[in-house]
Design a protein around this nucleic acid. Sequence first.
DNA 1: GATGAATGAGACTTCATTCAT
DNA 2: AATGAATGAAGTCTCATTCAT
Lengths: 194, 194, 194, 194
Amino acid sequence: MTSASPKKRNDILKAALELFAEHGFHNAPMAQLAKQANVAVGSIYRYFKDKDELIHALHTEVDIALQKALIREVAPAISTQQQFVRLITNLTHYLQAHPHEFKFLEQYYNSPFGIEIKREKLLTSAPSGRQSAFGHFFSGTARESIKPLSTHTLHALAFGPVTFLLRDAISGLVTLDDILIKSLAEGCWDAIKK
Amino acid sequence: MTSASPKKRNDILKAALELFAEHGFHNAPMAQLAKQANVAVGSIYRYFKDKDELIHALHTEVDIALQKALIREVAPAISTQQQFVRLITNLTHYLQAHPHEFKFLEQYYNSPFGIEIKREKLLTSAPSGRQSAFGHFFSGTARESIKPLSTHTLHALAFGPVTFLLRDAISGLVTLDDILIKSLAEGCWDAIKK
Amino acid sequence: MTSASPKKRNDILKAALELFAEHGFHNAPMAQLAKQANVAVGSIYRYFKDKDELIHALHTEVDIALQKALIREVAPAISTQQQFVRLITNLTHYLQAHPHEFKFLEQYYNSPFGIEIKREKLLTSAPSGRQSAFGHFFSGTARESIKPLSTHTLHALAFGPVTFLLRDAISGLVTLDDILIKSLAEGCWDAIKK
Amino acid sequence: MTSASPKKRNDILKAALELFAEHGFHNAPMAQLAKQANVAVGSIYRYFKDKDELIHALHTEVDIALQKALIREVAPAISTQQQFVRLITNLTHYLQAHPHEFKFLEQYYNSPFGIEIKREKLLTSAPSGRQSAFGHFFSGTARESIKPLSTHTLHALAFGPVTFLLRDAISGLVTLDDILIKSLAEGCWDAIKK
DNA sequence: GATGAATGAGACTTCATTCAT
DNA sequence: AATGAATGAAGTCTCATTCAT
């Protein structure tokens, strides 16, 4: 699907993000999506082959934006621990500020879509947010300061807690203040540091 | 809504677990479910008011079974760290051996259903489910050995990595051997211990 | 269908009358009917071949009871007008006191069932309530005092107003007191008297 | 709920009228309705939210058409009696010529739908429908020539016979010729005139 | 290129009827 | 004879997708 008007394509993706996050893939009819995007139903199909392709495209966009956010202010100058805490903090802040993105991603990775994607990531060096930023971190000089575990395990210890807590935060069950985020990040660091 | 024959009710729940795990709630039509359970469509409605109630009932069953598995061999005699490692190990083993249950739960907690339940668990003293086993642990004598963090944060640090890794394991992206599980559990412990 | 226990048969008919009147034929499932009658679903089918037969049987019962009520205190001694007013009054009183019966009959005559029955009534001298009581009246000595119209027209002029008003009364839109009923009956008499 | 093409909307209403009249609301599946209207099932739902709304909409249409027919040739010049006879005659002629409309209305007023409507008519000044034409008549100068009864009673005496007889006529049990209609109308007049 | 009315497969659910116990 | 669990056809409604304008 080639895009004729990037503006319109964006409107659709934006509307899709909101609807998917709020109602789930299966409770977001194309008709409603079109309405929210101020676009005719038929037009959506000029930009995306079908609903699945729309979902995948949205994932790519969201993933790219997330990656950008992750590496903000992660200077090489600062200590390894500080770098790590920075990454975790960036991740948490960004997703807390973008609950739609978070809900969308959770949903995505919990659906048939997600598994496919994960498998691909292993094979190709996919342009995917999280893993690449952290992947870079884990395979860099940090390696000396952290436990000699597989990348998968490290990812789990670093990411797991954040996503777990974010779920609760976004459902309104907890409030994430800076103190909490800091202690979370430090806990994660304790989990992986040598 | 519960009728006489527990056998048939069970057949339905079993079929539901498989289909929901493999295709998702929304891609598991009642007709297919009936077929898989060797039951007429209408029969399902003798045991469950509607699809939602079936999903909730399934959650209850799965949750109870999981809790039973969690507390296996967690003797009061062993050290706090050993208790914790035991809990994490039990959780991981059980869910790895029961991928359907895991996928179902992930899906459940990522849906409107789950949030409701979580909220309830906060208010009531959750009669079943993951949190109660760990909740018990965190509020017991272990408290002296672990960081003074909120229950939510502790849960996140303890559970987050496991569920994160399990997703990958169940997708076939990693293989969880006992060594890996042990280092994961120890990592979690490092994250929360004082 | 032969009746084994007239008691049970009656329970079923009574329950059917209530449910049909309150919810309509199509919103009165056999299961609910059974429950209300304190009888197993299957048992209903021992007394009535199917739902249709049950409805027809109920019609017969209701019709017979109505006919009995109609001829109460219609002595040959009193004047023709008084006889007529008596009939109308009886009809109104009875149906007002038995709204279930009225609603059932209205529904019955407004359905495919009713038309069938009416057609039969023309051919055979069916044991049917209303028409036979009034039929008898119209073809008796009263004929001299009333307009020389067809039986159908006379029926219409005599019955029409009553049933029309009863509908409103039973919906709660009007209250029928004795004065109102009297003026109604007199109006009907004015319509048919010579 | 009203979309662009009034043609298709009309086709649906026309088909609905036929099916509802012939088989009843509950024996006229949407699928059959669609077929009869030469329309896809889904299309019906573009024009009407659900079956109930379709039924209500149909009632509105039928009611408007009926009212138009009622007031034909009811000149103010003619006598009160003549006006009344005219109204009754119009009503009878129209409904005899439009049996579907008659059956539909009977069914409608005998269902939960109808009662609602009647109640509303009492409160508001009914923008359409039978009552308004006759209501107008009863509250006009005619009042001097007719009995001092409640509007409800007058309606009953005027309408009751007509609807009663029409039921039989439409079932084919009677044939309504002009003579019969005339004597019916005069009977009704005798019932209400002072 | 854009529009949105039309389509119809398919989802969920109900309920009259049967039949093993 | 009675029971009520089981059945599955059939009903209402939704929604991804197409296509004439």
